[in-house]
Design a protein around this nucleic acid. Structure first.
Lengths: 177, 177
DNA sequence: GAATTTATGTCAACAAGGCTGACATAAATT
DNA sequence: AATTTATGTCAGCCTTGTTGACATAAATTC
């Protein structure tokens, strides 16, 4: 050693690339895509003094009307207290109502009001437009491939949380038929 | 009106579906996919008392060694103070070093150390494995379709932030060739 | 019927990581 | 010499995540 052994504090000047055995391409695309996807509803939320936490709650209450608090906690993977704060605000502002569970009266079924439904739709609209624009450049079969990929990214044991009502136009037939 | 006009607080019992003109299928898949994708590195981060903010900084410093603080702020879309906190911790723990800019001595170029590179790779590994598993179920051309879609989801004016080094194996030719 | 478990709500406290605005410094630019 | 720029830092605030403890009512079990 002419001077000293390799110091750990030395700057590394080479960039990490896909050659390092890691799929940085998709890791990074996923980050940027989600960053911009979630930024869409922010302006609307700001007008209501709501945040992304409110958006997520409102979304799932609209997608699965009548779900219980426990079910919602399981979907969002947050704690009771985190949910309680935003849920209370959504109830106080008349976006969501609680209905006593018909079978089990301890449960509170959560439903959107007309106001809550309207806001959920308004928040989803720019996200849907962004997706439509991204798909417009895609080839015919691409949508199915993208849905398969995204579902494949979800933990297998949680894929059941994603219902089939999820389907849009083209592949909704199996339910209706 | 037999009883009273429609009350706004009435619970809506029908679920929002794709029929409402919104692409809820992909909106929801994207949420679940990203939720689980970002949860992968959490355990490793916990061992270092780091969070996802540290991960993002470490990632981009490794991907673009020598970038300046201003450039990093632009990529992450956060404020100087938010960055300062986590960056300071990464520097104090020897994961990142600052080098005075060669042309402009006001600038601080950010580089990973060997330690920082190692951690970046360790954090990316489980994410890369998840992606590989999702792609394993896909058809041959699907990867290109997925990359196009994700890129299409990014704001057009920010697509330049995603360099082409991003490419892995199959489509890296154009640089090397 | 009494005891236990379950679903939910609520209180207090804390932490991470966003934010703003103000100000300091050194270096580059005009 | 004056101004602008890149960065750092201080103080403080907000949202949204966390934990633990405790209360209530309803369902379930013994």
């Amino acid at each position: 050693m002419t001077q000293h052994p390799e110091r750990n504090e030395d700057p590394i000047k080479s960039a990490l690339t896909g050659e390092d055995g890691i799929d940085f391409a998709i890791i990074e695309l996923f980050f940027f895509a989600y960053r911009d996807f979630t930024s869409d509803p922010d302006q609307i939320l700001g007008e209501y003094a709501f945040g992304r936490a409110h958006h997520r709650v409102l979304h799932f209450v609209n997608r699965r009307p009548g779900l219980t608090v426990a079910e919602l906690l399981d979907v969002l993977r947050i704690t009771k207290q985190s949910l309680a704060r935003v849920l209370k605000q959504l109830i106080d502002t008349g976006h969501i109502v609680q209905v006593q569970g018909p079978r089990d009266r301890r449960q509170r079924e959560l439903y959107p009001t007309a106001k809550g439904r309207g806001l959920a739709l308004a928040l989803a609209a720019p996200q849907s437009r962004r997706i439509a624009a991204a798909l417009a450049e895609a080839a015919p079969g691409d949508r199915a491939a993208i849905e398969r990929f995204l579902l494949g990214m979800v933990n297998p044991e949680q894929r059941a949380q994603i219902d089939d009502q999820t389907a849009t136009g083209d592949d909704r037939r199996r339910e209706a038929g």
